[in-house]
Each structure stands twice: as structure tokens, then as C-alpha cells.
Design a protein around this nucleic acid. Structure first.
Lengths: 196, 196
DNA sequence: CGCTATTTGTAGTCATCGATACAAAATGCC
DNA sequence: GGCATTTTGTATCGATGACTACAAATAGCG
């Protein structure tokens, strides 16, 4: 067995890539994928382009890691909100409220990182964001279909559209109060739609 | 009085700027402001950059003319939908339905040109789109406030958020059927919200 | 101390962005 | 015809985009 030294062979890194992902996550969230340039991303990390590309491969590569991190740190915790032992309409109303709170939590990085990412102009980054978005939507649809199979498609469409609207309005300056009021109003229809 | 000749003095134009605005309107709508390059815009018109800048001043200048044209040709006809002699909730439900139809009308240029324009990365174009958006929102708010002053702000927020969501989802591929179903579901809450 | 491996900083690459300089071309006016 | 005026096409401009070639620097290993 070879020695498993704590430090690898060559010159040591002067920055921590994991911390870099966290820092640039905020930058991507604040400015959007297109408007966050590699020059911005490297400057925020205090490194030069070669270190950036050695660590992350490409701008889109870093963005993929940011999206992964976002699902664990920053995104709405779907599994905590969509509980199998609670009425579906109640869960979905809570989801919309959580979206309002989440999207308004940081005014400098408003809206949903993933949802906004699905609208950028880079095909690779856009596809990565869309894949993440689809996964979240499928989770919601399956949660609804488990108890309301007939209404699952329609209500899922309504939820994702409302969340997209909340994210868009958060980015255009709507604060917590307005988002929350809208989310609650939007949530009122769910009980009817699910025939509770 | 000087002679008002039909044709001005110098070399005649080989293209019609008004037609150019109409053609590039579709291009802006299809790709978004940022992704539609001046090279694209001039090629679509069959002209070279100098003719483009002589006629429109700048890319953002053309976009301002496109937004103006959109309000007359392409956008939702607010004045036809928000009728003072019809119940407010009914008008707003019709507005959401019109939005669904309008945003899905041309799959290659989905969503609302103005709403999508408010999210671009060029400050000048973004401000122009935001001004147009604010004007539309104010029209809606005043229409509601005329008969439901207490609920005007909240319901206006709900309407603009829902329309932003519909536009976003139209661009992400939702067809007429899904948008319409969502718009109708969203419209159901209006009667309750306005205490009719 | 060499030797290898890896990261670093400098200084670029090439493509594309929006926007222009300039002279030839095409018209009206006299 | 000759001049003034305006648009045209060609061929760029400088700035910025993502990305890299290359050699000096810094470590472990023998």
C-alpha cells in the first residue's frame, strides 16, 4: 500500500475550491449566469484564470457544481415541506410560502438560482439548470399524484408557474411582504383544486 | 413655402425602417434582447451596420421602437379586456386567459416581449422595458382600484406575478393547453379575493 | 541535492460584442 | 453638368467574452 499523505505532490493550492463554489454561488445568484463573467468569478475568489480552469474546468462546469451545492444550501427543502402525512393542499400552500420567503431572503441575490438559470443564454448552463428544475418539478408532481392522481398534472403546472412568477418578481424588486401576500393568495385555490 | 418633395435629397434608402422594426421585433421576441446581436438584427434586415445605426441610433434605440410597436401590435389589448361595465374579477380572469393565449400564440417567440425584456442585462434596454411594464401594471391597478380600492394592491401583485409566471413558462416550453389551464385555475381565486 | 508533480502568475489567444471611419454610389436641386 | 446631400458597402475599431501557453514557484520523494 502506498503512503496516503495528507498533501498531494506538487505546489499547494492557495485557495479552497469548495469555498470557491460557495462564494461564486452567491455571485451567480446575484447577477445571473450570463452577467457573471469569468473575470468576476476569479476576482471574487482572489485567483487567476488558470487556477480557475484547473479547479473547475469551465464556467459552466463551476455552475454545475454551484447548482449541486444550491440544492443542499440555498434551495427550498422540498422533503421537509412535502410530508406524506399532511394534507397535500396544505403542503403545497406551505411550499409557495416557503418560495416567497426563500426568494426574498437575500435581496442582493433574489429569486431562485435554478429557475433563473433555466433562462440564461448559455446552452450548457441552461441545460444543467433545466435538469435540476425538472427534478424538482417531478418531485412535486409525484408527491401530488400519490394522493390526487387526477389533478397532479394541472396542479403541478399551477405550482411551477406560480413559483416562476414569484422568482421573477423577487428579482424585479418585490419584497417579502408582497411575495408572501401573493403566495398566500395563490395557495387559497389549492384546496378547491384538490377537492378537499 | 419650400417644396415638400416626396423624396428627400440624397441617396435613397434600400430598406424601410418601419418594416425593419417589425422584422427585428420578432427577432428580439424570439431570442431575447441579449441574445439578439446587432449582426443578427442587421442580417435579418438585409443591411449593413452603418445603415442600422443611421436608422435606429443604437441597438437599445431600436429596442425602444420595438417596444412601442409591441404595445400596438403583439401585446395584450388591455383596454379591450378591462371594461368598466363588467365585473372586475371577470375582466381579470379574462386578462389571465388572454395572457395564456398571447404568450403561446407564436411558439418561436413565446412569452411577453416586455416582461422578458425587463430581465435582460443591458441597463438601457431593461429600463425601457421596465417603464413599459410599469405602465401596464398601473393601468391594471387603477382599473381594480376604481371599484375595489382596498384590494387593488394585493390583487395587482397577484396578477402581475401570475402573468410573469405564464410568460416564463411559455418560454420554457409550456403550450397553450397548459398555460390556459393554469391561467383559469389562477383566475378562480379572483372572485373570492374581490369579495364578489 | 536533484527529480517529479502540481499550482501559480503573466501575458497572452481568438471570437464576438456594439459601434464607426471613410469613400464610393445615388439621388434632388440649380 | 455640377454641387449638395444622404445612404451605401467595406473594413475596420476598442472593449470584453471565455479560455490557455508557458515558465517560474513550491511542494513531496528518493
Amino acid at each position: 500500500m502506498t503512503t496516503n499523505s495528507a498533501r498531494p505532490r506538487g505546489r499547494p493550492r492557495r485557495f479552497n475550491p469548495e469555498e470557491g463554489v460557495a462564494i461564486d454561488q452567491r455571485l451567480f445568484h446575484a447577477r445571473g449566469y450570463d452577467a457573471a463573467s469569468v473575470a468576476d468569478l476569479t476576482e471574487a475568489l482572489g485567483i487567476n484564470p488558470p487556477s480557475f480552469y484547473a479547479a473547475f474546468g469551465s464556467k459552466a462546469g463551476l455552475y454545475a457544481r454551484v447548482l449541486d451545492r444550491y440544492s443542499c444550501a440555498g434551495a427550498i427543502p422540498l422533503s421537509e415541506i412535502l410530508r406524506p402525512n399532511r394534507p397535500v393542499a396544505e403542503c403545497l400552500a406551505a411550499l409557495l410560502e416557503a418560495a416567497a420567503r426563500n426568494y426574498a431572503a437575500d435581496p442582493a441575490a433574489a429569486g431562485c438560482l435554478t429557475l433563473e438559470g433555466t433562462r440564461c443564454n448559455d446552452p450548457e448552463a441552461r441545460d444543467a439548470a433545466r435538469a435540476m428544475d425538472r427534478a424538482a418539478i417531478d418531485t412535486i408532481r409525484r408527491f401530488i399524484a400519490a394522493r390526487h392522481p387526477e389533478e397532479a398534472d394541472q396542479v403541478t403546472n399551477y405550482i411551477e408557474t406560480t413559483m416562476a412568477g414569484l422568482s421573477a418578481k423577487a428579482r424585479s424588486g418585490h419584497g417579502l411582504d408582497r411575495l408572501l401576500a401573493t403566495a398566500r393568495l395563490a395557495g387559497l385555490i389549492l384546496a378547491q383544486a384538490l377537492r378537499v
